[in-house]
Nucleic acid binder design. Structure first.
Lengths: 245, 245
DNA sequence: TCAAAAGTGTTCCGAATACACCCATGC
DNA sequence: GCATGGGTGTATTCGGAACACTTTTGA
């Protein structure tokens, strides 16, 4: 049992006899893999570092967590700074804690991913990055730190997620066509789908509501617009809707 | 940009002007939700705390991470101490970082889950816990800290995992009957399945190999024994086997 | 012989697949 | 008119659900 200024904390079974304080030496950061869907391609928002280490290299946006801050709040803060958006879809996916992952010391980072509607997003000027930009997930430059791993895990996580939950709608504007959804699934899963079958499948979930509205100014038959019905989804959820394709 | 003894670290965009060192004040722990399958019920290994805080309350086994240690190594260390086992299935599932989750200070904990074969497990005497025991997942006592949340998330994670990957075999001995698997799925998902259909479904995955062996000393027709073929699974994996029931 | 669980076969239905085809708009 | 993408219908196949039935062992 270890006694210290925090009280008796036998929660810890560590065998090495470090002073208790030495266990409180970790830095904690949050990194956000931000996805967007633009013109038929799935993109990720990256920043270019303005200083060493990894100066001029691209990286996943992130920040140290303050000791006063919850993890989730920290992710929201970063996202708001970077995109100017509140209330976007955010979820934690994995924590990266390799001993040597950060040259500045022992920093463990919690990976979050976010889904933003491209139309709403306003690029935000920032003092901590020399540049910022969207990258096609099929063409990512080498990233700083272990951010390649983080990005890979983030994409993998989203691909799995999308098969069981209707999260893709967070990447689309409130009104969209069925082909918009199909294009998004195709960009994400790198796979082509049969149009009539995709349409049947996605409508059979019962969570899409047709609107009395169609596309305008298109050089072909205008497509009907739909919206995602969150409440309908919540009531149907018990029966496990399957978004598998 | 922040300059300090670690060098120039503009990775961080924090706006409050805390000294850099103040960001390195986190404690980091690992908690392991250890699952076992005994006599038709799914169980979790818990320890009873021997001292304050939460004295005499049950908790998920865990420990502080040493600054010299990788996260995954830490989880393996805890598991080996507690069960005497190496090479068991371990996977990270979620990180819990609410500001007030630990009375001793700002401790963020990374949740892992492990699957152990009940036959192999040897209870290990420990100095940091006054008791240790398996609990049916349908009947868990109130737990210390935020361990109720951690356990709930761990179970949820395993339930999802089991639908896409053949992890359940890690809970069974190397040779098992088809009804063993069915019982395990039923205990995990709290649902009954039709025997003939379950059998067809699980055999259709192609990852089970029938052995030239049957049960002995049973008061009914002895069941054929099977083993899980990991290599076969790896080669079939591309075609996404579905373990959904 | 009987209880208990192992194991097989068959029917039915709905969902996924693979197509061929028609429709509305801008230019 | 014609290119372009929107949208519908159908025949076939495959897998899941439901359920009735036979087999093999110990006691």
């Amino acid at each position: 049992m270890i006694n210290n200024k925090f009280g008796s904390v036998d929660h810890f079974l560590s065998e090495n006899n470090l002073p208790f304080e030495d266990f409180f030496r970790f830095g904690l950061s949050v990194d956000c893999v931000i996805f967007g869907y633009h013109h038929g391609t799935l993109k990720v928002l990256l920043i270019q570092r303005g200083a060493d280490p990894f100066k001029y290299q691209w990286a996943i946006p992130g920040d140290l967590v303050s000791p006063e801050e919850d993890l989730d709040s920290s992710a929201e803060r970063i996202l708001q700074h970077l995109t100017g958006l509140k209330d976007i879809y955010v979820e934690q996916f994995h924590t990266f804690g390799q001993r040597d992952r950060h040259p500045a010391g022992r920093v463990v980072t919690v990976g979050y991913f976010a889904l933003v509607e491209s139309e709403k997003y306003q690029p935000v000027a920032s003092h901590w990055a020399s540049d910022i930009g969207w990258f096609d997930i099929r063409n990512i430059p080498p990233l700083a730190f272990d951010h390649d791993d983080i990005l890979a895990k983030g994409i993998e996580f989203l691909r799995k997620k999308v098969r069981t939950e209707p999260v893709v709608f967070n990447l689309l504007p409130p009104k969209f066509t069925l082909l918009d959804i199909q294009g998004l699934y195709e960009a994400l899963l790198l796979e082509k789908f049969d149009k009539p079958n995709f349409r049947k499948k996605i409508l059979s979930t019962g969570v899409l509501v047709p609107l009395d509205e169609v596309q305008t100014n298109v050089a072909h038959r205008p497509a009907k617009l739909f919206r995602f019905d969150q409440e309908r989804y919540d009531t149907l959820k018990g029966n496990t809707i399957n978004f598998e394709l």
